[in-house]
Design a protein around this nucleic acid. Structure first.
Lengths: 349, 349
DNA sequence: GTCGTTCAAGAAAACGTTTTCTCGGATTTT
DNA sequence: AAAATCCGAGAAAACGTTTTCTTGAACGAC
């Protein structure tokens, strides 16, 4: 079961066994073969704990996500796992469920397991909870937190690009009253998306009715509520952009309930472009933010930080583009509510 | 950083520090306080690897699921994680993506990390891949594999109950031509579901048109294909039961495409009752198989096996009930295709 | 043919813990 | 008051590796 047993049977020292396993070149081919044979016979697997205890490298990365039950995250986890496997890393995943206690606990456990780096994919505001990791100089990668710091990389999402495309698309369809259902505005990322929306609207010369800026919570339930609210306004919007797809799905759900037809009566655009979006009824137009790409960037950020001998003076900033994925949940604005054609023509590029 | 540093600063031996941390009662309160203070000051976290190396207990469980991107599984992972956290266990999750290589690799790594047990939630047929775990006497828990063995527990799903309810429900709505879209029939679980369907149909006195037994693949794409196929049959079914919700979602999607209205033209029932089901349009009637419950059972199976000093002579069998969750995707059969009323009355209980 | 080099492989130290063993002082027993 | 018991805490062994240090044999150089 242990390296000693292997050594005994192969009649070599444990050092030789270790060297054989690790492919150190100073081992005679003859001995190497003998050792390997015994290893096979015994079905010996080295003990990772002992290995990493002495080598000081755990080959574990932590991955902290908000909610694994939100379909956005599994894709990220899968992507992360895929690359991790290729690079012989293990992942310790935590789904925080937005519980600070849970996060703190999970951070602590990760440190105790001596993870080599942690990817934090939470769109959250719990930054302080990760101080422990910072003081221990563990490489980190965040999504959308300020400028990178030593050992701390950042993946900046370029919300503006995709959201501008969305707004332009709606404008081209003659929509004028466009609403935006944001995420919880305590979240930086939610704020950033809303700001990008406002800017895009301004850019194109449309005004945003304050009523049409609704705060959701990134859940389907939130989308349901938001739509209910929206339908009570004297001037209903003819199009809605949601801060994530789950919200959009909630809106769809409630539209069905209320007899509002999408896209005839209401054009709808989501954000994230989760896989499910294309299976909605109708298929949901959404702003794509590639989960696989995020996972890839996050992993590489950690890996390159770990492999570097001196930490990067400032961490690296990665940028992820967003872009509109066109489907069937948007249509021309209802005739009565169309924008003047002159403006239209221009922005329809 | 290590226990030695703490010992040095607190002017005690490392043994005392260890005892303090582990709450061994023989430590004088006074010393204990001194040690704790130093621990706080230093922000010392014990090294789990060293700990479990000497104690022989890794406090890690493995969790192997088929596909994390299938919404069925995240709920299980979340549930599993929740209980694990409570019991101070870590989880190593693997999403196999149905790749035998991947499974083998992940099994190997789990063994190398000396996991204390592995929960295998795959509805699959890759049983042989887990032999390595068996020979190493690592406690396992499967879903729906034959009778339990020493150290190997089994969660048996009682498909019959939920499926019978579904069939009875449809019969009560005067459906006579009921189709079933199965999962890949190499999977035991898919087989079991189909068998349960056949039995329920027979029980209630309905015959199954062989055309109406379609093999899907548990994906939305599979559901789409299955519906296309189904619509070509001379005698279209008026109701469909799907082997999982993803398939049902695919069917919904394609029905929309083809102008088949659910539930007016076609009644639809899914299986699993994933959270998403209630947000479909219309909300999907589904056979509930509680993911949380599965997670709970799986974890407890492992935990109780680990805590037991002698392995259970035969592993334990846990049983999970399924039952129908009624929503809006089913309706009376189209007038032309109704069953004779006499039979109806009886089975409508 | 002696003397450095080179090199393969064993011995031993180290990693950070837990746990057994040991010891000396305090407490109880007779 | 001496002997026996108890108990808190330190010393040291152990866990299963990797890696440095050591050794001894083979080899080439002079």
């Amino acid at each position: 079961m242990s390296i000693h047993e292997v050594a005994r049977r192969a009649k070599v020292s444990i050092a030789t066994v270790s060297r054989t396993i690790n492919g150190v070149s100073t081992v005679t081919p003859q001995l190497s073969r003998r050792v390997w044979r015994v290893i096979e016979e015994l079905g010996y697997y080295p003990n990772t704990q002992a290995r990493s205890l002495v080598s000081g490298r755990s080959r574990i990365f932590g991955l902290i996500v908000s909610e694994i039950t939100n379909p956005f995250f599994p894709e990220i986890i899968q992507g992360f796992e895929d690359i991790a496997v290729q690079n012989n890393y293990e992942i310790l995943t935590t789904s925080t469920v937005h519980d600070p206690k849970r996060i703190a606990l999970s951070v602590r456990r990760m440190i105790e397991r001596r993870v080599e780096g942690v990817a934090i994919v939470t769109f959250g505001m719990e930054e302080a909870l990760f101080d422990d990791l910072k003081t221990r100089k563990i490489p980190l990668v965040f999504i959308d937190v300020g400028p990178p710091l030593p050992r701390i990389s950042n993946i900046r999402i370029d919300y503006q690009h995709g959201i501008r495309e969305a707004v332009q698309h709606l404008a081209a369809l003659c929509h004028e009253r466009i609403a935006f259902i944001s995420g919880p505005l305590i979240l930086k990322s939610a704020m950033a998306r809303q700001r990008a929306f406002m800017e895009s609207m301004e850019e194109i010369g449309l005004t945003v009715d304050p009523d049409h800026l609704i705060e959701g919570d990134h859940t389907m339930e939130g989308g349901i509520k938001a739509l209910k609210k929206m339908l009570q306004f004297p001037k209903r919007p003819t199009a809605v952009i949601c801060s994530n797809d789950m919200t959009a799905i909630g809106v769809m759900r409630q539209s069905y309930e209320e007899g509002v037809h999408i896209p005839r009566d209401l054009s709808l655009i989501g954000f994230d472009d989760i896989r499910l979006a294309q299976f909605m009824i109708p298929p949901l137009t959404s702003i794509k933010m590639s989960q696989t790409e995020i996972a890839r960037m996050a992993f590489n950020a950690l890996l390159s930080e770990v492999q570097r001998d001196i930490p990067s003076p400032d961490g690296t900033e990665y940028v992820l583009r967003t872009s509109l994925a066109l489907r069937d949940s948007t249509a021309m604005a209802p005739a009565g509510a169309r924008k003047k054609v002159a403006v239209l023509k221009k922005s329809a590029e």
